[in-house]
Design a protein around this nucleic acid. Sequence first.
DNA 1: ATTATCTATAGATCTATAGATAATGC
DNA 2: ATTATCTATAGATCTATAGATAATGC
Lengths: 206, 206
Amino acid sequence: MARARSEERRAEILAAALTVIAERGYRGATLGAVAERVGLSQQGLLHYFPTKEALLVAVLEDRDRWDTGGGAARGGGAWRPDLLASLVEYNAMRPGVVQTFSALLGESVTEDHPAREFFTTRYVQVRADMAASLRAEYGEVLPGGLTPERAAVLMVAVLDGLQYQWLLDPSAVDMPAAFRDFLELLEGPGAAGRAARRDGEAGTRD
Amino acid sequence: MARARSEERRAEILAAALTVIAERGYRGATLGAVAERVGLSQQGLLHYFPTKEALLVAVLEDRDRWDTGGGAARGGGAWRPDLLASLVEYNAMRPGVVQTFSALLGESVTEDHPAREFFTTRYVQVRADMAASLRAEYGEVLPGGLTPERAAVLMVAVLDGLQYQWLLDPSAVDMPAAFRDFLELLEGPGAAGRAARRDGEAGTRD
DNA sequence: ATTATCTATAGATCTATAGATAATGC
DNA sequence: ATTATCTATAGATCTATAGATAATGC
């Protein structure tokens, strides 16, 4: 019971940290602000996460579990283009989470940032997984003419870049539609039909 | 003479601010660190820029002049795809500047960030200028099938997104090559030849 | 007068440590 | 014993204001 309580508390704290980081970035986030949101004193929070950096690491590990933890996600299938299109649609409904990780990604390029290695390692793996998915689907050359590896770099770039434009000006940027546009460039005309056939779904996109 | 001295000093301070922001972001940058780099006391610096925010605004205004100030840049021609390809190549040689603005863009999505409006306004205009350039070149539909407006959103996303991947792991990402890949997707095969003909240059890309 | 700088410092914060108190689990 | 929290506080910073000093420009 105590253990369960404790886990609950930690989860509450992580959720609060997500929110505060979205509002102010990691450097701007204060332990006091996170604690207040949970209804703890700042020192009470430090009982669960002994340092500010430990809290950030926990936030990042949590994300890692989410992204790669699900059964279907393991082994390269998580970053299939059609699943990504759904992910983008899902993300467009939770600006808070997108804002947290966009703020962290932006900060992570500065020196000695505790999230830097996380993002670096993660992108190596995400690009590799995407390339594998694209290769499985299209072989060595996509309809648009790129190799899977070269397409993967652009895919990650589009995903991240769209988030910034969308966060800054949600009404000016239709993030899911833009991502679908990009997929069509990569996959050539008829991509929507191909995806629908594979999933056994009817209906068209766009 | 006093005026000239003063302008020089301000320029020195702006250059130092660029560097410190690249290292630590705006929130992490301290006036003391900027001042030290110029060889001034923190209070001496405040003589030139009365607040930290005033210093940031000056950095951003400086960038605005750079981007849109040149004669050829005015009126929409600055964001032509072929010029962008050169800009990306140029940027790949100055990671410091790229890092400054990538860090600022990342921070700008957090609440009440003093650069938020700058980036929001800027992106509206950049997208519009790009769309105008693409329309002038291709008309209502690009070879890849997108309208100029829809292509512009993706182009900005690719530019920003590639910078993060490249800053985190320069040896893993060939930023200029990736951007050329994207242009070929947009413009279809033969884009390199088309650009070369327009510029009266020989030679191929890629 | 104005400009360029400096010393001193007020007033806010922030992280993290120390040590106490109360409740829970063997 | 261990867990969950709290009060108190040390030790660092940070921004910005106040006021002094020296040099430059009319």
